[in-house]
C-alpha cells in the first residue's frame, strides 16, 4: 500500500477484516461438525452463528496467542499482531485490554485440545441467544456437550489442573459475553461510516450487521 495509508488510524482495517472473514468461515465449518447443529432450522443455525461468531473467534485465537510477547502469531512466528495493530483497525482499549486479559486467563487454564473444542461447541450452542426459536432443543444439545466436558475433565485431566476447571471454563463464557457486547458497540460505531464499512468483507457485514443498508 502507499506509504501514507500506513499512518492512517485505520491502516489495519482491511487486513483485520480479511482475517476475521476467514475466521468466520472456519467457525461455520466447525459449527457444522457439532452433533445436532445441522438438525436445527436454518434460521436457528444463522441466529447462533451471528451471535457467537466473535466469541468463537476470540476463543480460537487463543491457540495463536503467546504469553511471552502478549501477541497473536499468524502463519508462523514472523507475523505477530499486538494490541497496537488492532487499534489500527478501529478498536479501542476498552475492548482490547479485557480481550488480552481474557487471552492470558484462558491460556493459563492450559486446556487440552478436547476441552478447548468442547468449550467452543458449548459457546455456539447457547440457548439464550437473541432470535432463537427452538431454545429448548439448543439447550439439550448444549447440555450434552457440557456433560461430555465434565466427564472428560473428571477422567482425563489430572490434578492440580483439573481443580474447579469446569467452573473456570464456564466463567470464560461469561467473560466472552461482555467482550461480545463491547465488540458490537465498537463495530456499530465503525460500520456506521461508509468509508470504513466499505473496507469490510460481505461476510463480515452479513454476520456482524450492516448499519448502512
Amino acid at each position: 500500500p502507499p506509504m501514507d495509508i500506513n499512518f492512517s488510524p485505520f491502516s489495519m482495517l482491511p487486513h483485520l477484516a480479511d482475517l476475521v472473514s476467514y475466521s468466520i468461515q472456519k467457525v461455520i465449518g466447525f459449527a457444522k461438525m457439532i452433533p445436532g447443529f445441522r438438525d436445527l432450522t436454518a434460521e436457528d443455525q444463522i441466529a447462533l452463528l451471528k451471535s457467537s461468531a466473535i466469541e468463537i473467534i476470540m476463543l480460537r485465537s487463543n491457540q495463536s496467542f503467546s504469553l511471552e510477547d502478549m501477541a497473536w502469531s499468524c502463519g508462523g512466528n514472523e507475523f505477530k499482531y499486538q494490541i497496537n495493530d488492532v487499534t489500527k483497525a478501529g478498536h479501542s482499549l476498552e475492548l482490547l485490554e479485557p480481550l488480552v486479559k481474557f487471552q492470558i486467563g484462558l491460556k493459563k487454564l492450559d486446556l487440552h485440545e478436547e476441552e478447548h473444542v468442547l468449550l467452543m461447541g458449548i459457546c455456539i450452542l447457547s440457548p439464550d441467544r437473541p432470535g432463537l426459536q427452538d431454545n429448548s432443543l439448543v439447550e439439550s444439545l448444549q447440555d450434552r456437550l457440557s456433560e461430555v466436558l465434565q466427564t472428560y475433565i473428571l477422567c482425563k485431566h489430572p490434578p492440580p489442573g483439573n481443580r474447579l476447571l469446569y467452573a473456570k471454563m464456564i466463567q470464560k463464557l461469561a467473560d466472552l459475553r461482555s467482550l461480545n457486547e463491547e465488540h458490537s458497540k465498537q463495530y456499530r460505531c465503525l460500520s456506521f461510516k461508509p468509508e470504513h464499512s466499505m473496507q469490510l468483507t460481505p461476510l463480515v457485514l452479513e454476520v456482524f450487521g450492516n448499519e448502512i443498508s
Binding site: R38, A42, E206
Partner: peptide, 20 residues
C-alpha cells in the same frame, strides 16, 4: 432488520456447502 433476517445469503451458502 427485515432485510437482514430474510437474506443471509452467504451464511446460507456456507452452511449448505459440501453437504451431500
Amino acid at each position: 432488520k427485515k432485510k437482514e433476517s430474510k437474506d443471509h445469503q452467504l451464511l446460507r451458502y456456507l452452511l449448505d456447502k459440501d453437504e451431500k
